[in-house]
Design a protein around this nucleic acid. Structure first.
Length: 269
DNA sequence: TGACAGGTACATG
DNA sequence: CATGTACCTGTC
């Protein structure tokens, strides 16, 4: 167990922010997560956050995963004091961090996310992990399923994925997995590219359009200037008749997108 | 019953 | 380039 004082951090908000579909409530105030082939439990009381791992593992994996070295208070201070909407959104979802999720998993989960709601996305992701992921034991002696490798999905059929409830996204997933396994698409090069170049590459994958590509850029490659525009954000943008002030927030608009998305989803509106 | 959920692919003008 | 349409599935 490793405990740390963290500000501008709320594990419940992060779990409900819709950027990660494998971070789930475990008990009343504890959450579980799998990433990097590892299982982690997180619990929080105020600014005190406990992680079920050693300090060494925390520093090696989770500190970066939760983006804890970034100054989110600074982002909030940069918001126009007269912009009541963004101020309120940042106050409501101010504990959100932009995670650094694994690339392949983020590609898959956001292909599934299209025209879909969060509970059903989670259900689909769970089914994929259960059917195609490696099963391992956690420190409690309970089993949990890792996220499946590209090979596992490349080797299955569209029909089998449809049986898991993926619907019309099933062929997208099989095609994308095969592109990656057959070397038609190279994920290894992506982290080195800038936002524009990375997005251009991601758009070549099956089932990846502009919005999903932006989500992958934001939630896996940590291009926090990416600003995914979906139905909720479209509604939000209408609040700005003369246009959303992107120029004021250059380089970190994606952070504000997350505050706004969370606010549209869970706030008072 | 029908619209909606963090859209994309594909076909047109 | 801009618009239009079909598409799985569960929930309200």
């Amino acid at each position: 167990m490793y405990t740390r004082e963290i500000t501008d951090f709320d594990i419940d908000q992060i779990a409900r922010s819709g950027q990660c579909f494998r971070l789930r409530p475990l008990t009343k105030d504890a959450y579980s997560l799998t990433a990097f082939g590892k299982y982690l439990e997180i619990s929080q009381k105020g600014t005190e956050v406990a992680f079920s791992c050693t300090e060494q593992e925390f520093e090696a994996l989770w500190n970066g995963y939760f983006d804890l070295d970034t100054d989110y208070a600074g982002f909030k201070k940069a918001i126009d004091p007269e912009d009541f909407y963004l101020q309120e959104a940042a106050r409501t979802g101010g504990g959100i961090r932009i995670l650094r999720q694994e690339l392949w998993e983020t590609i898959v989960t956001f292909i599934i996310s299209q025209q879909n709601n969060i509970p059903r996305i989670q259900k689909c992701v769970d089914a994929l992990c259960r059917e195609f992921g490696e099963t391992v034991l956690n420190f409690r002696g309970n089993t949990y399923d890792l996220f499946p490798e590209p090979e596992a999905l490349a080797g299955t059929s569209e029909e089998r994925l449809r049986e898991l409830g993926l619907g019309y996204r099933a062929p997208y997933l099989v095609k994308t997995a095969r592109m990656i396994c057959e070397g038609e698409a190279d994920l290894c090069e992506l982290p080195a590219l800038d936002y524009e170049a990375a997005k251009e590459r991601l758009l070549k994958l099956s089932g990846v359009g502009s919005k999903v590509a932006d989500c992958i850029c934001l939630f896996a490659l940590h291009h926090i200037e990416a600003f995914p525009v979906d139905t909720h954000i479209k509604a939000m943008l209408k609040r700005y008749p003369s246009g959303f002030p992107f120029e004021r927030y250059q380089g970190f608009a994606g952070v504000l997108q997350q505050y706004a998305f969370y606010y549209e989803l869970h706030g008072q509106g």
